[in-house]
Design a protein around this nucleic acid. Structure first.
Lengths: 198, 198
DNA sequence: TTGACTAGAACGAATGTTCATTCTAGTCTG
DNA sequence: CAGACTAGAATGAACATTCGTTCTAGTCAA
């Protein structure tokens, strides 16, 4: 009720989109702390004054960005849950989506998965406890209940299923993997599923 | 020859140890950019002047820390390679070691695995291409050559083997896992190995 | 043994710069 | 013309780094 969440303005004007887009790129290329407001001004062609008109402060830009992207991921995952019935299909679809997103919008992925949000959005829980990650774990647990996935500590199972894929995403974003991720989808998925299937 | 690497001083005086220890804690607790030199002065009981006597600058502290820890990990892994003959045993030992280290010295692990070094040590390759990670991949490849591990893209195999464990480490450091990691060693190792064994 | 001399180490106040944020003034638009 | 929006100069605080000085311990000459 008295949380800072209410402070959020940031409607979807072209200006805010400009700012969020520029901030996303700068934050992921150089890091949040190496990005100054003047940098964002230059990259977005939106003036200091306007930025502070739409956002409470620099942190507010990051918060707004983060919330938007988490929501997007959340609804992506919900669609997947609706479109597929089995844990097998759902988990595979999640990995396929993450792989494609990484190729299409690396900055989004970098910001979501591999930023230390805590450092610049102080009152933020780690990504791992954000809704999308919870959804991923729920998919695995559902598979355990339906008998597709062997009985074991749920979070360990989830780590086994998604760990390899997340690792590949990191390697790809770090430039260690040359081929696009979807090329590896079948291979890593076979490993992932074999590791937990009954 | 003209690289900055030579500039490194930082012998092992008590003072430098103090500074490195304090920096490790502060960097991992609050992040590099949220840590000021005065913070380090307070936490280490070493004066500003002395810090600049031993280290070229703030970045130099981080560099020194990083290099020390990478070397340590490197030699740990070499010992493991010497002590075990099969890919199976080596990889398992690596995970066991990482799990124990995470419990014993979480800050070390956090700094090594989950900091965005690029952001504060500009000329640093991503961790994933540091020696220890290469060693991990080599272990898997060796296993493929010896017939223990099924034929597949090496880096995908390595991700499958270590991905789950690394994920658990992250979850543990983020406070999502309550039990100490070694409790999960058998379970995750079974998954990991099953995912790539012939 | 003493006292002069030296060099490295330690100190923390002073400096200059960077940067988030604020302010004042101006410009559209309904 | 009123209110939302834009603009960019001005402000002030925080910070990394420098500098002049002091301290400590070792060396050596007499």
């Amino acid at each position: 009720m008295d949380t800072t969440a209410e402070t959020q303005r940031a409607r979807n004007t072209p200006a805010t989109e400009q700012v969020l887009g520029a901030a996303l790129n700068l934050f992921t290329e150089q890091g949040y702390f190496n990005t100054s407001i003047p940098d964002i001004v230059k990259a977005s062609s939106v003036s200091t004054g306007s930025i502070y008109h739409y956002f409470s402060d620099k942190e507010g830009i990051a918060r707004s960005l983060y919330e938007t992207l988490v929501e997007r991921m959340e609804s992506n995952f919900s669609e997947i849950e609706a479109a597929h019935a089995t844990a097998h299909d759902r988990c595979r679809a999640v990995i396929a989506l993450l792989f494609e997103l990484t190729e299409q919008e690396p900055a989004v992925m970098r910001f979501m998965l591999f930023s230390r949000h805590k450092e610049f959005i102080p009152d933020q829980k780690p990504v791992c406890s954000s809704r999308p990650f919870v959804q991923m774990r729920e998919m695995v647990v559902a598979g355990m209940q339906s008998g597709e996935v062997r009985e074991m500590t749920p979070i360990v199972a989830a780590s086994a299923v998604f760990g390899g894929a997340l690792r590949l995403i990191q390697l790809r974003l770090d430039g260690i993997l040359d081929a696009p991720l979807p090329d590896y989808l079948d291979e890593i998925w076979q490993c992932a599923w074999r590791s937990v299937a009954v």
